[in-house]
Computed example of a mutant assay.
Amino acid sequence: MAVDLKTKEHIRGIRKAGRIVAACHKALSKRIAPGVTTQEIDRFVERFMLDRGATPAQKGYKGYPFATCASVNEVVCHGFPDSVPLETGDIVTIDMVADLDGWKADSAWTYAIGRTTASTEKLLSIAKQAMLDGIKQAVPGNRLGDIGFAVQSRAERAGFQVVTAFVGHGIGRSMHEYPEVVYRGIPGQGIELEEGMVITIEPIITAGRAEVYIGPDGWTASTRDGGWAAQFEHTVAVTKEGPIVLTRWE
């Protein structure tokens, strides 16, 4: 299967969608608090995108009914927004994809709700750093194994595990494009990265074991042992000047 390489004009289109995603995450970071529900967050995100001329690309994708995935504590990804208030000490990952003029950008972020524990702060810190380590490897001439190895090494050195059941992906006109970005690997192996590739780097890191199960809704993935999980994701363009994060806000 061939990689759909993007021109500079294409990347500008994805960046415009990415700016909406970034602005939405920035706004959410000030709104997420104890007592807020993920259902309220979902409505906020959908309205935020629509008000800026974009649409939430996840809504309706393969029948998914919401504008966001909202994954609380032991839910690793694809959690359904609901009416349960978030509590102090919880963590929640909000994953969103904006479609603007046919170009898509994807970013997930794990938020701590109120005060949290030192162990949870460490999980969040390592998960974010693992993403950043992966992004640093997204340069022409490197291989997907370099990204996976960087992520896996950061997580395992800190005593955490990478959930390997879920992967990153190419993105552009479609939400999921070739190639898949796996978060374990051997340096120098896998598909070679080329200028013009746009991929998501979105490892999920767990404090427990990496095994997951899918709930009865057919979407919600949770750790089998109840260990909490954190995920940070950016949409990244591979360029000769280095990796360009198209969804940066933090």
Rank of each mutant, 00 (worst) to 15 (best):
G102I: 10
G53W: 08
G168E: 12
T235D: 11
I126S: 01
F48M: 13
A54F: 11
A130Y: 07
A237S: 12
A23P: 03
V75H: 00
Y111K: 15
G102W: 14
D51Q: 11
G145H: 06
D95Y: 12
I32D: 10
I199G: 11
P81E: 01
H169L: 03
V72W: 08
E194V: 12
V72E: 08
G218L: 04
G196S: 03
A127Y: 12
I214H: 09
I32V: 12
G13Y: 04
A158Q: 08
A207R: 05
I20W: 05
A158G: 06
M197W: 03
S153A: 09
D146S: 06
G190I: 06
A207W: 10
L28F: 13
V236S: 13
A98L: 02
I201D: 02
G53M: 10
W103D: 03
R154N: 09
V45T: 08
A165C: 08
G114L: 15
I11M: 13
I41A: 11
E192W: 00
D101Y: 14
V36T: 07
A229I: 12
W219H: 14
E40V: 09
R115N: 15
K6A: 11
I186Y: 08
R47I: 06
V72T: 06
C69H: 11
V72Q: 00
I91G: 08
A158L: 01
G215L: 12
K8G: 11
L144P: 08
A67M: 07
A67C: 06
I147K: 11
G102V: 15
D95K: 09
T247V: 13
T37D: 13
A112G: 11
A158I: 03
I14Q: 04
G196P: 08
M96C: 14
S29R: 14
A70N: 03
V236Q: 06
T68Q: 02
R43G: 06
L144N: 14
V163H: 05
R15E: 09
H10C: 02
K62R: 15
A138N: 01
A165M: 04
R224K: 15
T117G: 04
E40D: 04
